[in-house]
Design a binder for these strands. Structure first.
Lengths: 164, 164
DNA sequence: AGAAAGATGTTTGATTTCAAACTAGTTGCG
DNA sequence: CGCAACTAGTTTGAAATCAAACATCTTTCT
């Protein structure tokens, strides 16, 4: 019957302070896709951060470098949309990547506001290393979802696509 | 053949600056569970934030209030573990909720370090409102995943469980 | 052409989060 | 018992992110 409405602690005829100690439950949240999505992404990202953090590599760099690699000449705006982050979030990341010599800016043809990004040779090398961490991380994820990977990916893409 | 290794822009025999304009792709990232998980959670949470933000309700409050409601007498530590956030993240949230009169602290029996949390009547009311937003938001998600909801939930839970 | 509307990137301020260091209390073990 | 190891919660500092305001440039419409 999938009860979703709030039932304020209808612990039958028990006055005030129960003591659930550690057998605590997710309760109503357990049936929410949104909350489980949050928990899964959170756990996964923290694990990835641990992995790449061991080598002093910023985990956020991987996505940006990979997107530039697969879309040479991409603009910051386009990068922002693809990665789902706000455009203002890109600014410091791109600045750092440029100062680290991993990406280069190129002029745009007919738009003086924007610029185009490409990887430098160092950027390619850095991406290779980060991609190795990402590959190992995603192998773990592959193992967890087993043979339903494509179905899982399809559902995740649907969710992302639904909320523009 | 699912190529996962990095192939630094193997655009055959093209020198430097292509112009992908807006037909940009996720490239290698498109096949990563981790990245699609990030995009989906990000899009979903931003939508939820927009919804609850319209009413000046902090989206982060919902999870905490719901967990306290379903686990009366829960401790901050337990709350931290259930919601997957660091314990230090709980401190300001619980302070704000207490100052807003939504939760109350209770003494623990044999542990002077900790304390137990319960919802006040106002907290129950607030939870009801937030839960209404959450319910509507999750209805959208339900519609997106269709009849594979339970399978989706099972996979998300597996992912969260795998990374302790 | 010229003005209005829109797009791009940056800056700034506020939020959220984590991780490490810390204090205080508890538990285990000799 | 008494000390070592652990656990609970807080404080602090750093990082990531969003949203709004802004300057600059481009597109659209009349």
């Amino acid at each position: 019957m999938n009860k979703t409405s709030v039932q304020p602690n209808d612990s039958s005829a028990k006055s005030a302070d129960a003591e659930p100690r550690e057998p605590a439950t997710l309760g109503a949240l357990d049936h929410y896709i949104g909350f489980n999505l949050l928990l899964a992404q959170n756990a996964s990202f923290k694990a990835f951060k641990r992995r790449s953090g061991e080598h002093a590599l910023k985990p956020g760099w991987f996505g940006v470098l990979s997107l530039i690699n697969d879309n040479p000449g991409i603009t910051p705006m386009s990068l922002s949309r693809l990665s789902g982050r706000d455009k203002s979030t890109m600014t410091p990341v791109l600045r750092d990547l440029r100062h680290a010599g991993l990406i280069a800016r190129g002029e745009t043809v007919g738009d003086k506001r924007s610029y185009r990004l490409t990887l430098t040779p160092s950027g390619v090398e850095e991406l290779k290393m980060l991609a190795e961490h990402a590959r190992r991380h995603d192998e773990d994820l592959d193992a967890v979802v087993g043979d339903r990977k494509e179905e899982f990916l399809a559902m995740l893409r649907s969710v992302a696509a639904y909320f523009d």
